[in-house]
Design a protein around this nucleic acid. Structure first.
Length: 277
DNA sequence: CGGCATCCCTGGGAGC
DNA sequence: TGCTCCCAGGGATGCC
């Protein structure tokens, strides 16, 4: 499920209950995710106070009062459930964290991930700059430093396709396969075009389209959880909002020609060959 | 170094 | 209904 808008939505849902709550218990049912969960996580996390979660790329980071970071990555199939009532564990629930909020309410966070491409880590906040995953991440696409100038620097001497460029986490953090197609459709740029062929006006369109698509999807995610007393991490992609991903053989909303499906680096890529040049 | 294929893993859907 | 095959949204790794 998870690219930047979905991770942001999960983060927002978490922040409503996690902020200043205390970990009363933690159970780990499976440690072998993408990497092995640290042996002493149960001991280290118990009785910690969790502060406000935030997002970096596709990672969820929850600082604790003892200056540690609890990090989640949802991989390809991960989700987080927030539970306040009786709950029967289901298949692929790997971690359960019980929380008591400052208003003395009780919640549990369940980490579920069938394919186990996701990851959970716990490390000192001092090591955040050198964290083996976080240190590689490029710019946040919704922040001010996502600029034409930044993109020009990153493009320097590169010949990869613009779609692979958008999905490269060391360049822009948070865009995955679905939103890469959506952004390029919005920007009218062919996903196969190599980045060295992009002109300034194209970069401008990419930045505009990226911010537009991501913000729209975050807003959609926000409205979809607004009325849930028990926000459920399993929101999935906001498929109602998708214009081109998964729409092969449908007609383009702009020119009415048929949407094309191709493979770029073994990933499905959808585009309109008439609108996107 | 850049770019690409491969691999990790399980489940769901299509097709027979 | 059941089997097989193919595909899937991430990203590290290794090879050229």
């Amino acid at each position: 499920m998870p690219e930047l808008p979905e991770v942001e939505t999960v983060c927002l849902a978490l922040s409503k209950i996690v902020n200043n709550s205390i970990v009363s218990n933690i159970e780990i049912f499976r440690k072998d995710l993408r990497w092995k969960i640290k042996e002493n996580l149960e001991i280290d996390l118990k009785q910690e106070i969790l502060k406000k979660p935030y997002r970096r790329g596709k990672y969820i980071l929850i600082p604790t009062s003892k200056e540690y970071i609890l990090l989640f990555h949802l991989g390809m199939s991960g989700s987080i459930k927030i539970i306040s009532d009786e709950y029967d564990l289901s298949k692929h629930d790997h971690v359960k964290i019980d929380l008591k909020t400052k208003e003395n309410q009780f919640f549990s966070i369940i980490y579920n991930d069938p394919r186990r491409f996701g990851f959970i880590d716990f490390f000192s906040i001092k090591k955040i700059q050198n964290h083996f995953l976080l240190k590689k991440l490029g710019v946040e696409p919704l922040e001010k430093d996502f600029t034409i100038n930044y993109l020009q620097k990153k493009i320097h001497n590169k010949s990869k396709s613009v779609k692979n460029f958008l999905m490269d986490q060391s360049i822009i953090a948070g865009i995955g396969n679905i939103y890469a197609s959506e952004i390029l459709y919005k920007a009218n740029i062919n996903p196969l075009r190599t980045v060295d062929k992009l002109r300034k006006e194209h970069l401008k369109s990419i930045i505009y389209a990226t911010k537009f698509i991501l913000k729209k999807s975050i807003n959609f995610g926000g409205t979809s959880i607004r009325n849930h007393l028990q926000p459920d991490g399993k929101l999935g992609y906001f498929v109602q909002e998708l214009q081109v991903y998964g729409k092969n053989k449908h007609n383009c909303n702009k020119c009415n020609n048929v949407i094309t499906l191709i493979n770029i680096s073994n990933r499905s890529t959808y585009y309109c060959s008439y609108c996107q040049k």
